[in-house]
Every structure is written in structure tokens, then in C-alpha cells.
């Protein structure tokens, strides 16, 4: 066994150990809380997992927007930008695709519109950061709310469905993304589009020049400049890719699953923020994010069922999910934080 291979296996083993230890810690910490509140932890975990995966279509459809907002967080993170605006980028993608779908009835055009709208918004945040030194977290959070209320205005005032005033107009059938038939029930096609997007992103990040530039500027902007790369450009590019992916997530959700936005915004709200957890849980690796989004979706769906079967308040399931996710993401989040601080110092 050559030295290089041995190092690789050591790396491999460290990751497995790290994840296994944090998983055990998370589940145990959750178990202690459940047990102290008088619930049987194994019963609750059993429900969360068995009910979470009992309906594969629900599971994968629920995972789709999370997968894309996870990528929307991770791609900029690799380039050293903290994109908390996946929420707003998802909103703008969703509303753009809804409007285009409603007026043209063309699925491809609507998907493309959603992607471009998200990319434009992400690019704008990135440009503000790169050329005007506006903190991306501040501008992204402010834009999230501007978009939230703009969309609310649009669906309540302009795009409401006269037959069901609590929902926006639906996506016409011609622009909907269909269901792929499988034995034992069909699965919505959107998950597979999202997986393709993740694979393309993976290729882009690890097999192209652009990806290399992004990663180098993420690790050290100084070295990037020294090597002749422009770290400002990579900030903008990473935000364009990330924003576009979040926008695509919104478009897929609307065109392929719910077909309309409701006036309480429950359709869209929170998916971008969950994406941060998904991205960290997937170690900012597009392949890891595919898995972590499904894992996350399983916990959320299972968590809903905990109230039904065990009579526990819904907040309890959310707490347990939070604990598990934090425990799993903590080792990696710690590394990222260290890197972020180091990079920030380097700039000054």
C-alpha cells in the first residue's frame, strides 16, 4: 500500500469516525431529553425513521428544495461567501417560474426563468460584497424580507386564484413537471432534476477551472491573487451559481409539486434557512448534500408523525431534529468557522 493510498484511507476513516461519533452523540442527547420528558426514545426514533421513509415520493419531493438550497449555501461557502439568502433566492425563483408558467405554459422556459432570477439576485448580493464591500449576510437577510412581502403582495393582490383565494393561480398542466412511474407508486420527477443539478455542480466545482478558482479563493484569497485569480470575480460567480440553484429549487417546487403558493407563505417559508443545515450536514460536498437533504426530509416528515402517534407536541420533534442536525454538522461547521475567521483576518 503506497503512502498516498494510506493517507487517503486514514482520511476516509477519520470522516467515518467523526460522523459516527457525532451521530451517536446527537441521538443520545435527544434520547436523554425524550426520556426525561417521559417518552420512550426508541419508540420516537422508530416512528421518525420508519414513518419518514414510508412514502418515498413524499420523502424525495420534500428533499428536493432542501437539496438545492443546500447547494445554494455550499457553493458560495466553498468560495468563502456566507450565503444566508437562499431563502430570498428560492422565493424569487418560485414566483418567476409561477408567473412565466402561468402566462406562457412552457415548463422549460419557467424553469430557466426561475434559475436566472435566482442567479441574478445571488449575483447582485455577490457584486455588492465584491465591489462595494457590503456584508453579504446583512444584504441577503434584508433582501429575504423585501422579497417575502413583495411576493405576498403579488399573490394576495394580483395572482390570487378566484376559486381558492387562499392560494395563488395554479401552474397550468402544460408547465407542470410530471410524475415518473415506479412500481408501487410514482415519484415526482423534480428530485431527479435536482440530483442532476447537484452532479453538474459537483463536476463544476471539482473538475473545471472555474471550480478550482472558486475553491482556491475560498481557502485563501491571497494565494488566489498571487496565482493570478481574481477573488472578487469568484465571489460573484459563486453567488450566481448558488442563487441560481436556489431559484431552481423554488421553480421545481412550484412547477413539480405544489403548483401554487399559499397566502400564508407556508409553501416557501423556511426552506432556504433549512438549506444551511443541509449544506453543513453534507459537508459542503454536492454528493453529500444529496444524502443530507434526504436525511433531513426524513427527519422532518417523521417529526410530523411523532405528534400523531405519540401525542408529543410538534415542538418536541423539532427540538430533537435540531439536536441531531447540530451534532452531525458541528465538526464540519467548526472547521468552516475557523477557516472563515482566518480568511477574514487575511484580508485585513
Amino acid at each position: 500500500m503506497s503512502k498516498e493510498v494510506r493517507i487517503r484511507y486514514a482520511h476516509y476513516l477519520t470522516i467515518v469516525l467523526e460522523l459516527a461519533i457525532s451521530a451517536v452523540t446527537g441521538f443520545m442527547a435527544g434520547a436523554i431529553i425524550l426520556w426525561s420528558l417521559g417518552y420512550n426514545p426508541w419508540y420516537i426514533y422508530g416512528i421518525m425513521i420508519s414513518m419518514g421513509i414510508s412514502n418515498p415520493d413524499y420523502l424525495l419531493s420534500k428533499a428536493t428544495p432542501l437539496l438545492l438550497t443546500g447547494l445554494a449555501f455550499s457553493v458560495p461557502m466553498l468560495a468563502g461567501v456566507f450565503n444566508i439568502g437562499g431563502e430570498g433566492q428560492l422565493y424569487i425563483g418560485a414566483i418567476t417560474s409561477l408567473v412565466i408558467a402561468y402566462y406562457t405554459g412552457n415548463a422549460v422556459l419557467a424553469l430557466l426563468g426561475g434559475f436566472l432570477a435566482g442567479a441574478a439576485l445571488g449575483g447582485a448580493i455577490g457584486a455588492l460584497k465584491a465591489f462595494r464591500d457590503v456584508n453579504e449576510v446583512v444584504s441577503a437577510i434584508m433582501l429575504n424580507w423585501i422579497l417575502y412581502f413583495s411576493i405576498l403582495y403579488l399573490i394576495v393582490d394580483k395572482l390570487y386564484n378566484p376559486l381558492m383565494p387562499q392560494q395563488s393561480v395554479p401552474v397550468p398542466p402544460s408547465a407542470q413537471i410530471g410524475i415518473i412511474p415506479f412500481p408501487g407508486g410514482g415519484i415526482h420527477g423534480i428530485f431527479f432534476i435536482a440530483v442532476v443539478a447537484a452532479l453538474v455542480t459537483h463536476y463544476l466545482i471539482y473538475y473545471t477551472d472555474l471550480g478550482y478558482v472558486l475553491r482556491v479563493s475560498g481557502l485563501s484569497p491571497k494565494s488566489a491573487s498571487y496565482a493570478g485569480f481574481n477573488p472578487k470575480k469568484s465571489i460573484v460567480y459563486s453567488m450566481i451559481i448558488g442563487g441560481g440553484l436556489a431559484g431552481l429549487g423554488g421553480a421545481l417546487l412550484i412547477q413539480g409539486y405544489v403548483h401554487s403558493i399559499d397566502t400564508t407563505m407556508s409553501t416557501l417559508y423556511g426552506l432556504g434557512f433549512l438549506g444551511i443545515g443541509v449544506g453543513l450536514l453534507g459537508w459542503n460536498n454536492p454528493l453529500g448534500i444529496i444524502l443530507s437533504s434526504v436525511f433531513f426530509a426524513m427527519l422532518i416528515i417523521g417529526g410530523e408523525m411523532v405528534e400523531l402517534t405519540a401525542g408529543a407536541p410538534p415542538e418536541l420533534a423539532d427540538t430533537i431534529i435540531g439536536i441531531i442536525v447540530i451534532a452531525l454538522a458541528l465538526p464540519y461547521a467548526y472547521k468552516i468557522l475557523i477557516n472563515y475567521v482566518r480568511r477574514w483576518r487575511e484580508r485585513i
Binding site: 476516509y12 470522516i15 451521530a23 459537483h202 453534507g282 454528493l287 444524502l291 443530507s292
Partner: peptide
């Protein structure tokens, strides 16, 4: 990167 993905899968 690939092995990271694989490791996460296995875990």
C-alpha cells in the same frame, strides 16, 4: 471529494 461523499453515504 469523492471519498468524502462515499464516507458520508456509508455513515
Amino acid at each position: 471529494a469523492i471519498s468524502t461523499g462515499a464516507a458520508i453515504t456509508i455513515t
